[in-house]
């Protein structure tokens, strides 16, 4: 039995996708369509990666106002790239194959997030302290990234600017195939673990009581999150609050925290917002490059509201 709300969301997502593909077609049809289809695929993939990684991350950290990016995981990806630059030297880095860079980045990110984030989760630090440290860590890595970019190439400000906010307009399509593969694998794993995630959401003691291997599950989830974050960061750049927006909306729609519902709902909403928003901005507002900023803005507001409400209780 498939939930009715999911069906509606799926239909909406399909409508958005079709509109994105077909509205205002002109010129060389085959060429334009291929171009748009590639971009559509990338958007869908980024949306899914952001939404799913946020759901899983919120579940393992037992906190509903977190996204991996707020905790600085996407900045870790940047940091991994910096490390690569430092190890290889600027020139070698610039000439390295993009897919290879991506793969090394992901591997480094997985290791780094286990090394840095796990102790924080383990130590059961005060949640506020953890969040704050995460945010500052994010600032640090971003500053470090721009510092090193400037040191390597003092004249090229574009590098630094390009990385500082999410941009859905020039998606890095070269990595699409590899990224799709990774997202798909991660998705299958998450979907198979959906019931386990439900139990993890009950908290550590309850989950162990119900027979979950806590450490293994936590590490596994973090690794999955790392992969998904790396995918979205590599494709469109850092997106701190997007995931929050998607998941908060999804929770509203399905009225449940059950992962079998929440994961597809969040992913579908992500697709609707991104693809629909992109279509809208392109055709109605004539300016699609600001979509990322607008959604980030909305996500930031959602964060503030959640923080505010959460602290009231």
């Amino acid at each position: 039995m498939i939930d009715r709300r999911l069906i509606i969301l799926t239909l909406l997502a399909a409508v958005c996708a079709i509109a994105f593909l077909t509205l205002g077609l002109r010129g060389n049809l085959g060429f334009v369509l291929t171009l748009r289809a590639t971009k559509l695929a990338a958007l869908i993939e980024v949306g899914i990666a952001i939404a799913v990684s946020t759901v899983v991350f919120q579940t393992v950290t037992a906190n509903r106002i977190l996204t991996p990016s707020i905790m600085g995981i996407d900045a870790l990806y940047l940091f991994a790239q910096i490390l690569l630059v430092l190890i290889l030297g600027g020139l070698a880095y610039a000439t390295l194959d993009a897919s290879l860079k991506f793969a090394i980045g992901i591997a480094a990110l997985m290791i780094l997030s286990c090394v840095l984030i796990l102790p924080m989760l383990r130590g059961r630090l005060d949640m506020g302290l953890m969040l704050l440290a995460g945010v500052v860590l994010g600032v640090l890595f971003r500053s470090l990234h721009s510092l090193i970019a400037r040191i390597l190439d003092p004249n090229d400000f574009a590098v630094v600017q390009g990385m500082s906010y999410v941009n859905f307009n020039d998606v890095n399509t070269g990595l699409l195939a590899l990224a799709s593969l990774m997202t798909l694998c991660a998705l299958v794993l998450v979907w198979r673990a959906r019931h386990i995630l439900d139990v993890v959401a009950l908290g550590r003691d309850a989950a162990i009581g119900l027979g979950i291997d806590w450490t293994k599950t936590q590490v596994g989830c973090l690794l999955l999150v790392s992969v998904l974050v790396a995918v979205s960061t590599a494709l469109v750049g850092p997106a701190a609050f997007l995931g929050l927006l998607f998941v908060a909306l999804a929770e509203r729609v399905v009225q449940s925290r059950r992962h079998a519902l929440l994961i597809p709902a969040a992913a579908l909403i992500a697709v609707i917002v991104l693809v629909g928003g992109q279509t809208l901005f392109q055709h109605a507002l004539g300016n699609s490059s600001t979509l990322g900023v607008v959604i980030e803005f909305a996500g930031g507001i959602v964060f503030l509201i959640l923080l505010w409400r959460g602290s009231r209780r």
């Binding site: 139990v199 908290g203 003691d205 449940s256 925290r257």
Partner: peptide, 24 residues
């Protein structure tokens, strides 16, 4: 017990069956 999740009573009690049915 601090349960972070928004669950109904039936859902919560149902989790007691997890070790047997793994969620299904």
């Amino acid at each position: 017990n601090h349960l972070g999740s928004r669950l109904t009573v039936r859902e919560l009690v149902g989790f007691g069956r997890f070790p047997h049915s793994r969620g299904h």
